[in-house]
Design a protein around this nucleic acid. Structure first.
Lengths: 337, 337
DNA sequence: TCCAGAGGTGTGAGCGTTAACACTGCCACC
DNA sequence: GGTGGCAGTGTTAACGCTCACACCTCTGGA
């Protein structure tokens, strides 16, 4: 009755063992690359596994080892270029590190929704969690996660006890603003992202600080929601004011909308008005005119966050760390004087 | 020794049972919402669970029920707008249907890479797989998956035995081409995506068929890689030819690049040349000029694929089905005569 | 009065794997 | 020629849960 088992459902370790004429433990050893298995035996076992198309039962393994080999990813709106590139980079890095990736998206901006996503991941016994949800609500939810579960927040601002990875938004915004001031603009206007995003506030800070340093007047911030539409609408208000000659936008999508609004208002870019974006989306170089912007390396962000997480998992301690990546100004044709 | 267990590691069902003064089986019943538990008992158990911050061990559960409650998602390049919106929609729908989502990305375009991603998901014992990787290689890999594992391919062309969800690309391309012809253009040029994508070929077919129907001459297809850069380069070659007055691009990013190339060549859009894209990315309405394009509902695609997958899981049979979604032409200002 | 049946609960087995330990040869060493 | 050790293998006991079944207690109908 050797084959009896195979008929009813998937083969298990014991089936492989029988076929190879060894004990199930030897099969386990082969599977886990234990050194002390005679190579001839190993071959026999491998052949048997192949013949039966055996795959180990990950649930049983997880149960006994108490490790799921799975990481959790909390995302918010994967439609945004930044988050989606980051997620992609994380998945690749996770695979290389031997982890599976499970995702849970927050349905809305509120803390409960993020907490809910985190809970779903914990139900699955993930070994660690990375949040790609750079809003304040995520931070609040993160702060409530018990300290024994490894955690990394991306772009989520400062918080006690939560390891973080982010771009140096203050420096990035300062670079953009400085660039415009250096071109001879009396001041720089700013169309920001939603205020409940830490990145937005950091960019506002970088912009404002720079203006103060050079003694330029500060205009009130107009805030959008990262969309082209919101950038368009904000810029339309700015376009009619002849004093506006330089606009720093919180991201490239809004800059794209601003470009359109300025065009409609008959104000040429860059001869009359200069525009700078943030992110450097792949399309930025092909806009009319090509967009000067602050480039951030989303993939590096993803890889770093994974590294930080794995470090915590192996060490068993939450690293108290905040990694900041320097962005880079890419000057194209949307700025001048 | 009631509390002894709790000190060393996470609480298990037995700990909750002891605290609530019931058997572990009753705890299980409460957890699984079994009807025959006295509500007073249920309350007591729930309180105990809360007090201990108990979470059931999903591995143990999966082991005994032989269900992982997890679906697998194969992605290729989540940086593209289409796939990333689809992934997002799938995750949401999966959660509503009570499933977790595990992702695996294909590292490159070849079949081995996709097969590898599928294998990783199978190792995790996912109950079904959706591929958001609309290349031929994915189709080839899908065709090799044993018939007993539920499967849905998105936008991956025709294949024997693999349930499919896609946009009706032929109809979409035909709509775009017809629109241009109706505006009075003698013919329509096409900048396509990479030929190894079924969607590319379908769009080429829709375009070509329409041209033949109206008796317009057919120009050779220029093919890009979906990027703005490739659209720009292809359009640059077209721009110098005065006979080119209408260009249908395989996606919006390439159309964006084409817009720039035409501008550089001094050919006005839409008075001299008309441009149509595909996808309707959120930025399309804010380009210079706003882009006429073929809109597809990525979210609907995602939801439909999930529905199809869940159907297969519950039925235990692979549904032989191909759902096609009609796209919609959105006329903006990049087309005219 | 008794028994059938249902509501409510407990007991024991078993899911497929790994860890710990036990066992068998064989070699090297004194 | 015993003793120690190691390579190679098998045996057994968990891991935490659900399922099947057994067991009570109560109700209602014959």
């Amino acid at each position: 009755m050797t084959g009896e088992r195979r008929v009813r459902g998937k083969p298990v370790m014991m089936d492989v063992a029988r076929l190879a004429g060894v004990s199930h433990q030897t099969v386990s050893r082969v599977l886990n690359e234990h050194p002390s298995v005679r190579s001839e035996t190993r071959e026999r076992v491998l052949r048997a596994m192949e013949e039966l198309d055996y795959r180990r039962n990950s649930a049983a393994r997880a149960l006994v080892t108490n490790r799921s080999h799975t990481l959790g990813l909390v995302t918010f709106d994967t439609t945004l270029v930044g988050p989606s590139s980051t997620v992609y980079a994380i998945e690749r890095a996770a695979r290389d590190a031997g982890y599976f990736v499970s995702v849970a998206s927050a349905r809305s901006l509120d803390e409960g929704s993020v907490a809910n996503a985190i809970n779903r991941l914990r139900e699955q016994a993930v070994e660690g969690i990375i949040t790609v949800a750079p809003m304040d609500s995520a931070l609040a939810a993160l702060a409530r996660v018990p300290a024994d579960i490894p955690l990394v927040g991306i772009g989520v601002g400062e918080a006690m006890g939560v390891p973080m990875v982010s771009v140096d938004n203050i420096a990035g915004a300062a670079m953009a603003t400085k660039h415009l001031v250096d071109l001879g603009h009396a001041t720089v206007h700013h169309i920001s992202g939603p205020p409940e995003w830490p990145e937005t506030r950091e960019r506002v800070t970088g912009w404002r600080t720079t203006l103060r340093q050079v003694g330029a007047p500060e205009a009130p911030v107009l805030s959008g929601d990262w969309s082209s539409r919101s950038g368009y609408e904000a810029a339309r208000m700015l376009a009619s004011d002849p004093n506006v000659t330089a606009i720093f936008c919180g991201n490239d999508q809004m800059a794209l909308g601003a470009l359109r609004a300025l065009h409609e208002a008959g104000r040429d870019v860059p001869t009359e008005v200069s525009v700078v974006g943030f992110d450097d989306i792949p399309e930025a170089a092909y806009l009319l005119p090509p967009l000067t912007t602050v480039q951030q390396d989303f993939a590096a962000l993803g890889r770093a966050s994974l590294e930080l997480l794995v470090e915590q998992i192996t060490a068993g301690v939450r690293t108290q760390q905040h990694m900041r990546f320097p962005p880079e100004l890419v000057v194209r044709e949307s700025t001048g004087r």
